[in-house]
Amino acid sequence: MFSNNKKGWLLLSPTIFILIIVGLVPFFYVLYVGFFKWNPLAVDPSMQFEGFGFNYRRLIFDGVFLESIWRSIKFSVVTLTLELSLGFLLALSLLSSFPFKKFFRGVHTLPLVIAPIVVGSIFKLFTVQGLGPLPHLLKDYFGYTLNYGMNADQAFWMIVIMDIWHWTPFVTLTLLAGLSALPQDPYESAKIDGANNFQIFVYITIPMMVPVLIVVIFIRLMDSLKIVDEVWMLTGGGPGYATRFTGIHIWKEVFEKRYYGLGSAMSILYLYITIVICWILYSVMVSRGKSED
């Protein structure tokens, strides 16, 4: 088979080469480093092998790391639920016609093209105490004090709102593409059978949209689990540990505290957890899709 597709392999080889260099080599290097005790700030700055499980055993009892994972999962579940709901509503709205639809669609898509670090800057300028307009408006009109530098809940929800603002357009556009491509026959049959809009949505639209939903959920889940840039800009992970998601925690351990071995183990463990979560989700969604068939 290989000899029959020589030309194909030849054409693919640059891509495979690049994938090996930028994907596999760093992955195996991180995997390798994760087995060592290594901090260049230590009295002995060399890499010391202390058993394959040394760093991983330590992580199992590292409360701050485990909390950061739980925080990231909580964040992902919240943002995914809200972005999917809002995105579905917007996509359905954009299917119908209304005045200034094209303008709305254009404006609504704008956040997508903004770099995450810039999104963080925009929100910081908009919400920083004393200077940003939002705290002033909330205080003046609703008597509400917004100070996410002091309030852990506010900091967490501010990040959630920022993520929703940034990524809901992606969900909307993807779902809109899926909705536009759905066949019309099932809808016509359902209407003839007397189904109302809610029943049509639940029993026809959603089941037919499952493949698109799976793609959207996976992309957003993986993205939200590795959020760093926007949070870095807005809160820096604070106050305290309130917004120290796993990505930020790993960054701080590796690049501030220089725990290269431990940080590598964290990365590998977190990757494993992400894969497991995605696999469970995929299995559940696929089995549900099959049972509904």
Partner: peptide, 23 residues
């Protein structure tokens, strides 16, 4: 301290928490 960054990084969250009134 040759371990300046690591040491300070360990202290940071506690100072943040004290400022935020969480501790």
């Amino acid at each position: 301290f040759p371990f300046h960054g690591a040491g300070r990084g360990a202290i940071d969250p506690f100072i943040y928490s004290a400022l935020a009134g969480e501790m």
